[in-house]
Amino acid sequence: MNLSIYLGLLHKAEQTLAASFRTVAEGHGAEPDVHFLCQTLAKQCDDHEQALKPIVDRYGEDESGAEPERMHAEGISSTRSGPVGLLRDLHDLYLLASLVDVTWTLVKQAGQGLRDDELLEVVSSCDQQTAVQLKWLQTRMKQAAPQALIVAR
């Protein structure tokens, strides 16, 4: 069963997203909303990872190298500066969060096929938060984009 591959993907993607939120929080301290919210959202990702743990323990997480190539996305290792840099960093977070989001959806599909109530319970406690993370990133980027792209120095 290949669900383990996707559980591994989800686990890793949440970890990467958490680390990236923290990197952005750290790098954009002069934007207090971004700074504090990214910390809060990083913590949510940590919680998701914890919630996923019993499921991973049950199905395993493929570390055998049997998973396809280029399975995982790179996180944000350092932030960019300036208004466009902020926009681009949020943009990267959006891509990472999208990966998490759609992976929850696909894992949920498998959970339904397996009639695994425990797994479905975990999904329902986490995927809503991921959806809100995406919405926040979109809200914040839409706010920042006109200023960054038209008048920022």
């Binding site: 002069a30 934007e31 207090p32 300036g82 208004p83 809200t139 839409k142 706010q143 984009a145 006109p146 200023q147 008048v151 920022a152 120095r153």
Partner: peptide, 19 residues
């Protein structure tokens, strides 16, 4: 009307950044 109105603290941030 393309985004929320810019709140005071953000206006000052834009002034700080020069835009």
């Amino acid at each position: 009307h393309w985004a929320p109105p810019t709140h005071a603290m953000q206006i000052f941030r834009y002034a700080e950044q020069g835009s």
